[in-house]
Design a protein around this nucleic acid. Structure first.
Length: 723
DNA sequence: CCCGATACTTTTTTT
DNA sequence: AAGTATCGGG
């Protein structure tokens, strides 16, 4: 069969990467150079041209989204479904292995996975129980340390306290935490990876099995791997297997959560590692790319890569200095309006910022002009309070001994079982070595409590037991519906005032449909690793927290942080708030490593743009309830002048350390208006020119609009017509 | 148990 | 500024 079609449509470097026979391959893929394409085509090539079995492939990603996209693209190329391929996140593949070999891993079959919220709650309780000073060892710090240890592959017995009192305490908590997790049959995210790593490392049979199976191992976003993930990969690599790592050291922006950029370096230095660079960019114009290259060029210790494009230079990069964040937001609105007038969709434009708090003002202005927008980030579906509540009930019904679930379920909605009753129940459970559920039954049988407490407890326990009986009788979604109605959760949210309760109930109903569609999607799958469909659903929920926002509007301006923009592209990109202290963030400027990560973040932001790039900063901004005057970001000055066009140049009155960025004054285009002119704006309507600011050639113009009041506009961008 | 007052924090986020 | 955590009173 002719398989050359897989190689059509690839450039030389891409083709080399797809067909490379080396056992160790590192593909350094610059932004927009076809990274996913290479990965997907390489897998297709292995299967079609080299006759590798789909079972021999292990493809690892960081997000479910990436894994799903990869699978469906491979299926598309092969024109056949490949449900048996192991393509998933580090966590989901670890989960799969641990469920499959739970006996060897010394786990119960039905272990549950905790999210970091639950993890925190547990640590809090342990710290309290050990009577450790919570002010000196706050739970979130302890959690961070425990996760760091796990990410470094360290069990408590490998931690030396060297007489350090602080570490001694932390280690004590770590040990207690591990014991608790084991007794409760719980795994946290870090544990999934560490445990599966240890399992394969220490079990000769399994190691042989997987070495034989996984002949083709591929890792996406390799620059984001942490220590344990790197070891985890190595663990699966036998003599006959080959590894393909794809990544970009210049896009490493998750160092702060443990990603080790060094992994790329050390992999590249291993003998026999072949390195292929993908340097042709298919996304951005010449100006955008050169700007990106110039900025990232200021970093040290790069593996080195120079992106180029066959595209023309395109528009210059526009830099806009606003007086305030309001004016900045106004400029964003103007830019969006102009783009749509040129025929763009709203969704072609993205606004990127360093921190979430910056979105507020922008939202306000977009809302006021009735421009649809969508914000990425924030609370995800399965993290919502009301959803977590329902999930707790499901967990408790499936596993009565899930103390964590019981603690949450028993107190929402309130049912006359308060902290005092609960504390007493915990004490009894601790004393008798029973789970909370069993302790509650004991309390009821032996009538240890009396009056209201006993009644409430009895009806709660009865309810859970009734549900357990119906677990196998009802279709999954009806079962969930029953729990929701009979638990009192709906009534509880009905009582909430305002829109809040309504939204919560809507979300809960959405959960029912999620269960329904889960049942449909997996109706042909082998779910023998689970006792019930609900159990399978819960396991998938903890590894895929769901989209941040349902697709309310299809065509909307995209608002997100620079971090969440990684991997995406837009025709027009605005990077806003480009000021020292904001971007680079004040907390990052002290250390070179952190500053360089900020710079990579800037590189990521710039390379998101296909055609147009706008950078904006303000002279004045209210930050944390305070007035702040920060100089423009150093990253702006790192872009060569001749790629930039400054809109409304103005001597910044706080232009201190980094010099003024207002250069190229002569390039500004302005339009002539006179005070009192009647003008019309495409969205604001008709108005009168009140004020013109600027020396000679005005660059800003104040207009009193009949409909929307007085506004300052940039004349070059205001798109006003005289009437 | 719910409420309001008060103190405190404030970068980025996936699993 | 604004959100969250904690505590004490009703």
């Amino acid at each position: 069969m002719d398989v050359s079609y897989i190689l059509d449509d690839l450039n030389d470097a891409q083709r080399q990467a797809v067909t490379a026979e080396s056992q160790r391959l590192l593909v350094l893929a610059g932004a927009g150079s076809g990274k996913t394409k290479v990965l997907v085509h390489r897998i297709a090539w292995m299967i079609k041209a080299l006759n590798s079995s789909t079972h021999s492939v292990l493809a690892v990603t960081f997000t479910n989204k990436a894994a799903n996209e990869m699978t469906s693209r491979i299926e598309q190329i092969l024109s056949q479904p490949i449900p048996e391929i192991w393509c998933g996140t580090f966590h989901s593949i670890s989960n799969r292995i641990l469920r499959r070999h739970h006996v060897q891993a010394d786990l119960e079959k039905d272990f549950s996975i905790l999210d970091s919220d639950d993890q925190l709650r547990i640590i809090k309780r342990i710290v309290k129980r050990l009577e450790i000073d919570e002010d000196q060892w706050p739970a979130d710090k302890v959690r961070w340390q425990i996760n760091k240890w796990k990410d470094d592959g360290l069990r408590p017995n490998k931690i030396e306290d060297k007489g350090d009192f602080n570490i001694e305490i932390l280690k004590k908590i770590y040990i207690d935490y591990e014991n608790y997790m084991r007794s409760e049959n719980l795994l946290d995210f870090a544990e999934l990876i560490l445990k599966s790593y240890e399992l394969i490392r220490d079990n000769q049979d399994l190691r042989n099995l997987y070495h034989k199976k996984f002949k083709n191992i591929l890792i996406d976003e390799f620059q984001d791997t942490n220590s344990i993930q790197f070891s985890w990969i190595k663990n699966f690599t036998g003599d006959g297997s080959n590894i393909t790592a794809v990544g970009d050291d210049d896009q490493s922006i998750y160092g702060w959560r443990g990603a080790k950029i060094e992994n790329i370096n050390s992999f590249s230095k291993e003998k026999r590692t072949q390195i292929i660079r993908l340097e042709q960019n298919y996304r951005s114009t010449g100006n955008i790319l050169n700007a990106a290259n110039a900025v990232i060029g200021k970093n040290s210790n790069r593996l080195g890569k120079k992106l180029w494009t066959a595209d023309s230079k395109g528009d210059p990069i526009h830099v806009f200095e606003a007086y305030s964040e309001q004016e900045e937001a106004n400029f964003i609105v103007d830019t969006v309006v102009r783009a749509t007038e040129d025929g763009d969709y709203y969704k072609d434009t993205a606004v990127l910022y360093r921190s979430n708090a910056q979105s507020r003002v922008i939202e306000e202005f977009l809302l006021r002009q009735n421009i649809p927008y969508i914000i990425y980030g924030g609370v995800r579906f399965y993290e919502r309070l009301e959803i977590k509540n329902v999930i707790s009930y499901l967990r408790l019904v499936i596993n009565n001994n899930d103390n964590n679930a019981l603690e949450r379920a028993i107190s929402v909605p309130t049912r006359g079982i308060g902290q005092k009753t609960l504390a007493e129940l915990r004490r009894i459970a601790d004393e008798s070595g029973l789970s909370l559920f069993s302790a509650a039954k004991k309390v009821i049988e032996e009538k240890i409590f009396k009056g209201k407490g006993l009644n409430s407890l009895t009806s709660f326990i009865n309810f859970i037991e009734d549900c357990s009986e119906k677990l196998y009788e009802l279709p999954a979604h009806e079962f969930v519906e029953m729990i929701i109605n009979q638990s009192g959760l709906i009534d509880h949210h009905m009582k909430e005032k305002g829109e809040k309760g309504k939204i919560r109930i809507e979300n809960i109903n959405e959960l029912i449909s999620a269960v329904k569609s889960f049942a449909i999607i997996h109706k042909n799958d082998d779910l023998s690793e689970f006792d019930s469909l609900i159990a399978a659903f819960l396991s998938s929920v903890s590894l895929d927290m769901g989209e941040t926002q349902a697709n309310k509007t299809d065509d909307a301006v995209q608002l997100m942080t620079l971090h969440s923009a990684k991997g995406l592209e837009f025709k027009t990109v605005l990077i806003v708030g480009m000021e020292e202290s904001l971007f680079p963030h004040a907390r990052s400027v002290e250390s070179i490593n952190e500053l360089e990560e900020e710079r990579r973040l800037c590189y990521v932001g710039i390379t998101r743009a296909r055609k147009k790039l706008f950078l904006t900063y303000t002279e004045y901004r209210r930050l944390y309830g305070r007035d702040s005057y920060n100089p423009p970001s150093r990253f702006i000055t790192e872009i060569p002048d001749d790629h930039i066009e400054f809109i409304r140049p103005k001597q910044s009155f706080s232009s201190g350390y980094y010099g003024t960025v207002a250069k190229n004054k002569d390039k500004i285009q302005t339009l002539e208006y006179a005070l009192g002119d009647n003008v019309v704006h495409s969205t604001f309507g008709e108005g009168v020119v009140l004020n013109i600011e600027g020396d000679g050639d005005s660059s800003r113009i104040q207009v009193s609009f009949h409909e929307v009041g007085t506004k300052w506009l940039v004349s070059a961008y205001a798109n006003l017509k005289r009437i």
